[in-house]
Design a binder for these strands. Structure first.
Lengths: 184, 184
DNA sequence: GTCTATAATTTGATAGAC
DNA sequence: GTCTATCAAATTATAGAC
């Protein structure tokens, strides 16, 4: 009878939560171990170094995030609906999780991150850009270059809106910003 | 013959630069001391605790930033020009300094900051909101509530654009996002 | 103002027993 | 897989001499 979540997953859960509060320096092997109910040395068995753990949470975060969005070319979902879903994903992170976007956090400190972690963070932004571009090009008459600009704009605006709303402790500020996004 | 910049200012300079790379945990008394050519204990003479130093760099950053923008109600500057100047201030930070916005960085880790530092970070966002609202209301027929939304949108978008451009190591991504800002 | 010395804590990491 | 034991390094901070 194994538990529903493996120890490695529990470690990832704890590390992700801490990193989404305090960034790359916001999680430590000791704190994670305490959270999961093992010793710090045992965490190293699952993830040899901090870089590995950092890269792993960024990778899992990216995969889960995109998975939650669904396919950008799903014929059953209208482009406008997909963009609303995209905004809702950020809003959920802010309002329900009450946590910063992991890769927005890592992105802010990108030049201070170990290579492995920085690369996974880049991938989050690249894959988000691609997802948005696909949706935007489906929606409209935009050329590829313009679709990329629009994708960058939505991505940047939502990451910034999270920071703004969290700093002012005012979720309404997020909604105010999201409303200004042109979605056609 | 005293030097042009006091020791306290040199300390602030070093701390700000480090914080704009690695966040609140990105600067330490030892590293700062090494940078300005004194010992770590001497830094405590100028700034008793890390909180004090953190709050001081956020406060100075805010004052300098707003000073560089000029008065939002300056009759000699058109609102559109002021907004272009606002965008240019972020761009300078990204391209010339090659550093993140200090308060964007602190904002991302806001729930992990000591109270004093968090409060100064909030003030940055509030004063930026107010500056932008003044300019926006001068420019157009917007009601106050709509002006606040527009202000939040510009602020959030530029902070997010910095993160995006730094993560992708592509300043053009910043410009692409800035272009999408509606400035009338 | 700056120093030496030192304290107390935390960190990432490894060796080796079980 | 998890543990104990241990390490070297870094951290914030203070006391007291100069």
């Amino acid at each position: 009878m194994s538990e529903r979540t493996s120890k490695a997953e529990q470690i990832l859960d704890a590390a992700e939560k801490m990193a989404r509060i305090g960034g790359y320096h916001g999680f430590s092997f000791r704190e994670i171990a305490k959270d999961v109910g093992i010793k710090a040395a045992s965490v190293h068995y699952h993830f040899p170094g901090k870089q590995d753990l950092g890269a792993a949470i960024a990778k899992r975060y990216t995969e889960r995030f995109l998975e939650s969005l669904g396919a950008p070319d799903d014929p059953g979902a209208a482009p406008t609906e997909l963009l609303q879903r995209y905004i809702a994903a950020y809003r959920r992170s802010l309002v329900e999780d009450k946590l910063m976007c992991l890769c927005g956090m890592f992105g802010a400190e990108i030049t201070h991150l170990p290579d492995k972690v920085a690369r996974e963070t880049q991938i989050f932004f690249e894959r988000n850009r691609d997802w948005l571009m696909t949706v935007i090009m489906r929606a409209g008459k935009k050329k590829k270059a313009d679709a990329e600009k629009a994708a960058f704009s939505i991505l940047a605006t939502l990451e910034g809106a999270m920071i703004l709303a969290r700093t002012l402790d005012d979720p309404a500020a997020f909604d105010a910003v999201a409303q200004t996004l042109a979605l056609e």
